[in-house]
Amino acid sequence: MVESSQSIVQDAIDVAIGERGEIGVQVAAYLDSELVIDQWGGLSDETTGQEVDGDTLFPVFSNIKAMTATALHIQAERGLVDYYQPVAKYWPEFGKYGKDKGTVFDALTHRIGVPLMPVGVTPELMCDWDWMVGQIAEMHPLFEPGTRSGYMAYTFGWVVGEIVRRTDPMHRPFGQFIQEEICQPLGITDLWAGIPPEVEPRVAKLTNLPECPSRRSGNTSGLAAVPGLSAGGGDYPGGVWPF
């Protein structure tokens, strides 16, 4: 049964790479704590021809929101965070321009009003935690917190992660909190919020996607939260945030 499943997954990977335009794929699945699927194929770096293998690390995007939310739930379980208290109770600098009304629950449910990335953000600045949270704290909300939704495609991690950091008695960096409170107790060895330098050679290199349909059609409002497209501060393409 396991061998059959491995074969089915490998066939799907081969089709994805050979016919669907994927570059490199890795699939792992566990059943009752046992690794039952461990298949891969393609390239992890088109520029060098390096192939994907069982040790390749892939960048993940919204997957990390689950880990970030789990970190906050740990703090709530310990009595360090109340979901229905304002974010500004734990992060006073956040409570400007009406954001003082936004609760931790609002942040978790994408109703805090700051879905856009800061003006001038770059990949390098995204790695500067203090710069990012400082810029987000200075933002005017796009709507009154708690009154509507605005998907925090990128900002979710810094908003929720800063609540975790502010309520951590040891004031650990968020990536360290993830490692010590989630990954290490569960024996997770290959997940980071910010990689250590020694694993960088294992990371698959991203390839830019083709131009997306919404940009070709001129509807950029749904992309305004993406670095390079964000105008920040409420001045963004498309007028009203479409949620």
Rank of each mutant, 00 (worst) to 15 (best):
residue 3 E to C: 04
residue 101 K to L: 14
residue 60 V to A: 05
residue 55 D to W: 03
residue 199 V to E: 03
residue 24 G to W: 13
residue 32 D to F: 12
residue 29 A to R: 14
residue 114 V to G: 00
residue 175 G to A: 04
residue 210 P to D: 08
residue 219 N to F: 09
residue 68 T to F: 05
residue 177 F to V: 07
residue 39 Q to T: 02
residue 101 K to A: 15
residue 25 V to K: 09
residue 220 T to K: 04
residue 42 G to C: 06
residue 21 G to R: 11
residue 171 H to D: 13
residue 84 Y to G: 09
residue 66 A to S: 05
residue 150 G to I: 03
residue 146 G to H: 08
residue 220 T to G: 01
residue 165 R to G: 14
residue 180 E to T: 14
residue 152 M to T: 14
residue 55 D to E: 13
residue 170 M to Y: 13
residue 185 P to L: 09
residue 20 R to C: 13
residue 122 T to S: 06
residue 204 A to G: 02
residue 83 Y to S: 01
residue 102 G to I: 12
residue 76 A to V: 14
residue 175 G to Q: 01
residue 81 V to W: 08
residue 91 W to N: 06
residue 87 V to D: 01
residue 58 F to M: 04
residue 204 A to Y: 01
residue 184 Q to D: 07
residue 169 P to A: 11
residue 6 Q to V: 11
residue 63 N to E: 04
residue 57 L to H: 07
residue 242 P to Y: 12
residue 97 Y to I: 06
residue 85 Q to N: 06
residue 151 Y to Q: 12
residue 209 L to E: 05
residue 104 V to R: 12
residue 36 V to F: 11
residue 209 L to N: 11
residue 71 A to E: 12
residue 15 V to P: 07
residue 12 A to S: 10
residue 13 I to T: 14
residue 216 R to S: 08
residue 149 S to P: 01
residue 232 G to E: 00
residue 176 Q to Y: 08
residue 34 E to V: 15
residue 116 L to W: 11
residue 225 A to L: 00
residue 105 F to G: 00
residue 167 T to P: 03
residue 70 T to I: 11
residue 213 P to M: 04
residue 100 D to W: 05
residue 21 G to L: 07
residue 172 R to L: 15
residue 199 V to W: 03
residue 33 S to E: 15
residue 149 S to V: 15
residue 126 M to N: 09
residue 183 C to K: 02
residue 113 G to F: 06
residue 24 G to L: 08
residue 156 F to D: 03
residue 110 H to T: 02
residue 93 E to K: 13
residue 118 P to M: 08
residue 61 F to N: 07
residue 185 P to G: 04
residue 160 V to E: 00
residue 227 P to G: 00
residue 217 S to A: 15
residue 205 K to I: 01
residue 203 V to H: 06
residue 230 S to N: 01
residue 168 D to R: 00
residue 134 G to D: 05
residue 239 G to F: 11
residue 101 K to E: 15
residue 35 L to R: 15
residue 111 R to Y: 02
residue 150 G to S: 06
residue 123 P to G: 09
residue 171 H to A: 12
residue 106 D to L: 02
residue 72 L to K: 14
residue 37 I to A: 13
residue 240 V to W: 07
residue 27 V to I: 15
residue 156 F to I: 12
residue 114 V to C: 02
residue 17 I to S: 09
residue 129 W to D: 12
residue 227 P to N: 03
residue 189 T to V: 12
residue 59 P to V: 10
residue 70 T to V: 09
residue 170 M to I: 05
residue 13 I to G: 07
residue 228 G to Y: 04
residue 238 G to E: 01
residue 230 S to I: 07
residue 227 P to F: 01
residue 179 Q to W: 10
residue 106 D to C: 04
